[in-house]
Design a protein around this nucleic acid. Structure first.
Lengths: 155, 155
DNA sequence: TATAATCGTTATGACAGTACAACTATCTCC
DNA sequence: GGAGATAGTTGTACTGTCATAACGATTATA
C-alpha cells in the first residue's frame, strides 16, 4: 500500500482543499501503520491463548472495574455476549466477579493480578512502534510527538 | 483513552530508552485515532450492505486485477475463502472473473465500474481524517505530512 | 404488598471466518 | 503421451462473534 502522500503538500493559502488532502494522506499513513499489523493481533492471540475479543475486554478492565452492562457498552456489544466473555476470563482466573455492595442485582468485574500481567503482555505486543518511527532523527521524533499530542487533544 | 504522551519528550542525548518511549507514545495516539473508528467499519458495512472482508477484497482489487491465488495471499487467507469472497462479489456485479489468456487454469479478477464506485464510497468513509488532524495549523500539518512520509518509507 | 423496572444469565441459533482434504481442469516437462 | 505440478473449486467442519427471547433475582415505586 503506497499513498499519494508525496503529492499532498500544503502550500500556504492553498485553501481547505489542500489541507484536506494533506490530512487525508497523513491519516492514510497512520491507518497503514496501525492496520498492517494483523500479524500482531495473531501474535497476541497466540501469546495469551485466547481470542482477541477476550484480550480487548481484559485490557479495558485494567482501567478499572466495571459492571457487566457497562462492559457490554464499552465493547459495543450486548449483555449476553459480555456474560460469555467474562465467563471465559473468569475460568482462566484473569478476572473476578463480585456482587455490587449497594445493588445486589449488579456484578462488578475486576482484573486479578494474573489478568493485569496478561493485559500488559498484550499491550506490549500491540504497542511496539513500527520500524519507520524508531528510525527518525531525535528532533523529528520530538516534533512528531508534540504535534500528535495536539492532534489527540483535538479529537 | 489518554496516553502518557506528555511525559515522553525526547531530550537530546537521552538514549534509546527515551526514544522508545516517545515513539510508543506517538504510536499509541495513532492507534487511538485509527482504532477508535469501529463505528466507521460498521458504517461501511451498512453503506455497502456486505461484510467488511468483502470490502477489503474489493478495495484491494481496485489497485489492479489479481489472480485468485494472489488475492488470497494479499488477504492473508487461503484459496477456498478467496473463492467464497469472489463468488459473493461477482454475484453483486462488483467484480468480474475471466480466464487468464496465457494460462487457462488461472482466473483474473477485475473490478467493474460499479465495484470501483463501491470501493470509493468505502474508502471515503474510512479515510476521512479525524477532527484533531484538520484542526492543525497549516505549517504543523505540513510538518506532520513530511515526517509521516518518511516514517512510511522506513516501514 | 403488588407491580413494574432493572441486572445478569441461559438458551438458541444465525452468520462470518478459517482450515483441511478431495476433486477437476490445465499446464509443464521428460 | 504420461507423470507430476499447479490453479481454482467444492465439501465439510469447527470456532468465534453476536443477536434475540425468555427467565430468575433484586430493586424501586405505587
Amino acid at each position: 500500500m503506497t499513498t499519494q502522500i508525496e503529492d499532498a503538500a500544503v502550500a500556504p493559502g492553498d485553501g481547505e482543499d489542500a489541507r484536506l488532502r494533506a490530512a487525508s494522506a497523513v491519516y492514510a499513513t497512520m491507518r497503514y501503520l496501525v492496520l498492517d499489523q494483523d500479524d500482531r493481533r495473531a501474535a497476541v492471540v497466540e501469546a495469551l491463548g485466547m481470542s482477541f475479543s477476550r484480550t480487548k475486554a481484559l485490557r479495558r478492565l485494567t482501567a478499572g472495574p466495571l459492571r457487566m452492562s457497562e462492559l457490554a457498552q464499552k465493547l459495543l456489544t450486548d449483555k449476553p455476549y459480555a456474560t460469555l466473555i467474562v465467563d471465559d476470563l473468569e475460568r482462566r482466573g484473569l478476572v473476578l466477579r463480585t456482587v455490587h455492595p449497594d445493588d445486589r442485582r449488579c456484578k462488578v468485574v475486576t482484573v486479578t493480578e494474573a489478568g493485569r500481567l496478561a493485559a500488559e503482555l498484550a499491550e506490549s505486543i500491540l504497542a511496539r512502534p513500527p520500524r519507520g518511527l524508531l528510525a527518525l532523527e531525535d528532533e523529528e521524533l520530538e516534533t512528531l510527538r508534540r504535534v500528535m499530542a495536539k492532534v489527540e487533544a483535538g479529537s
